[in-house]
């Protein structure tokens, strides 16, 4: 069983971390941050978490690609233009993407993590938001 106070604290934490655009978006979807924090903190938390996880998913993918290139014994260098370049493997090591990858899998892909997410999603009051979160976090309802 979760503590609502903890959920609210996590919401504030995520707001602090996420770019302003993401926070504005959440604000628009839920019709105001403060209102949502009182009315349905779990929905607010999951929506903020969704924004956050999108960044994490890309980092895990970068990690995958880093592993792939390591296996190939290559050191790819991204040419970013304007005389900027990026060494992919250095990027992976510098930001500890291996650990990010492990945490992501544990939190969002493992059976226990999915149980927590299912439990949280079931507590969201709005049916449409519940569906949205099921689709995003649990991968339900995708065609293709």
């Amino acid at each position: 069983m979760y503590d609502v106070g903890e959920i609210r604290r996590l919401c504030r934490y995520l707001v602090d971390v996420l770019p302003r655009d993401d926070v504005s978006y959440v604000d628009i979807v839920l019709g105001g941050f403060d209102k949502a924090l009182e009315a349905d903190p779990v929905a607010l938390f999951l929506l903020l978490l969704e924004c956050f996880v999108k960044y994490v998913q890309h980092l895990t993918m970068i990690y995958d690609i880093g592993v792939m290139f390591k296996a190939l014994n290559l050191r790819p260098v991204l040419d970013l233009g304007h005389d900027q370049s990026l060494d992919v493997l250095k990027f992976v090591d510098r930001y500890g993407l291996g650990e990010v990858y492990r945490l992501y899998k544990d939190l969002f892909r493992s059976p226990s993590g999915i149980e927590v997410l299912k439990d949280l999603i079931s507590r969201v009051r709005d049916e449409r938001l519940r569906e949205r979160f099921r689709r995003f976090f649990l991968g339900e309802g995708w065609y293709g």
Partner: peptide
Amino acid sequence: VDFDSWRRELEVLIRRVSPIIR
């Protein structure tokens, strides 16, 4: 469902990823 341990791990992830996003 062990929410607390999940939450603690999530906070570790947030701490790890936030400097990258910033």
